[in-house]
């Protein structure tokens, strides 16, 4: 209350000085005082009231028409006051929501967390960054009891919270499979049935699933409409698209998936990604898949984790540090 009283005195002085001189200094003072009003939640009608009192004290002989007019103004300000209070409440609610979403995002991070398995002959690098708070991309690496490595990359249509909820479903379904060394084809076929039953029409998920066997260095894989990855063939020093066809998950309940196989040799790389990588736009123009390969080439001499980090940084810079879509990139390199 004390500060507001002070302001009343101050306001009156400023007003007087302005009426007498019309100088810039008192206008600047008015600007400062209005900032302090906002900070202290003073409503518009209170300011008008302050104005009336000041002016009456300054000019006790003020004619009664002006007095009535000022009271009229006071009345018209009341709705603005209510709107302002509403705005304050909304702001508080928004902060509340924001913190709830960030809690959900943290939960999702814990829920969907995957640890990179230790495989003697494979150098594995993984990066997955959401465009907004919650990630609609999903990746999962798992080592089965018999030493096989399962690698999943998935992307759900859309972004944000609905996408993230959908991904949790995928994670639980995958964990409920009794056998972690299930064939990629079988995994996609089971997941497809789960997704088809549980999502609304028009929602779908793309997924690439691979199973690596360290004993014979063979990679079996299948794709459910997922953005094709790349295969680096070290001996020839060539990058090729990983060819795999298959319908996205969630559209048709009895879809069959083809399974393919790759023989990995020393120095070969398997590059898996989501369309957040290839859908990057540079000044409105889309980058081509060849450009993605160029960037990977540039950093391919680094350890796999360092490579994916640098590639991400490159595209983040390209888009002025504002991702348009969730970004996931996985590199597997055969060491031995």
């Amino acid at each position: 209350m004390e500060t507001i009283k002070l302001d009343l005195k101050h306001y009156k002085e400023l007003l007087k000085s302005y009426i007498e001189t019309q100088d810039e200094k008192s206008l600047y003072g008015a600007e400062q005082i209005s900032k302090s009003f906002i900070k202290n939640n003073i409503l518009p009608e209170e300011i008008v009231n302050l104005h009336i009192q000041s002016i009456i004290e300054l000019y006790p002989d003020l004619n009664k028409e002006i007095r009535h007019a000022m009271n009229f103004l006071l009345e018209t300000m009341i709705s603005y006051g209510l709107a302002h209070q509403e705005y304050q409440t909304l702001r508080e609610k928004q902060l509340e929501l924001k913190s709830e979403i960030s809690i959900a995002a943290n939960m999702q991070e814990t829920l969907l967390a995957t640890t990179i398995p230790n495989v003697e002959d494979l150098d594995i690098g993984v990066i997955s960054v959401p465009a907004h708070q919650m990630n609609g991309d999903y990746h999962h690496l798992v080592k089965s009891n018999d030493g096989l490595i399962g690698i999943a990359v998935a992307d759900v249509i859309g972004k944000g919270i609905p996408a993230a909820l959908c991904m949790s479903m995928i994670k639980y379904s995958m964990e409920s499979f009794p056998d972690q060394s299930m064939k990629p084809k079988a995994i996609l076929e089971s997941l497809n049935r789960v997704v088809e039953r549980n999502v609304e029409a028009g929602m779908f998920i793309t997924m690439f699933y691979a199973l690596y066997n360290p004993t014979d260095s063979k990679l079996q894989y299948a794709s459910a409409g997922h953005e094709p990855g790349f295969y680096y063939y070290a001996e020839q020093d060539t990058y090729n698209e990983i060819d795999a066809k298959g319908l996205v998950l969630g559209v048709s309940p009895d879809t069959n998936y083809n399974q393919y196989e790759l023989q990995l040799h020393q120095g070969d790389m398997v590059i898996l990604l989501t369309d957040g990588v290839t859908e990057c736009r540079n000044n409105g123009k889309f980058i081509e898949r060849e450009e993605v390969i160029e960037v990977i080439k540039k950093y391919a001499h680094l350890p796999a984790q360092e490579t994916v980090n640098q590639v991400y940084k490159h595209f983040e810079r390209l888009q002025n540090f504002q991702l348009k879509d969730d970004f996931t990139l996985i590199i597997l390199r055969k060491n031995v």
């Binding site: 779908f204 793309t206 459910a224 409409g225 319908l247 996205v248 559209v251 048709s252």
Partner: peptide
Amino acid sequence: KITGLDQI
């Protein structure tokens, strides 16, 4: 084509 939707 990528998503296999051209098949259905």
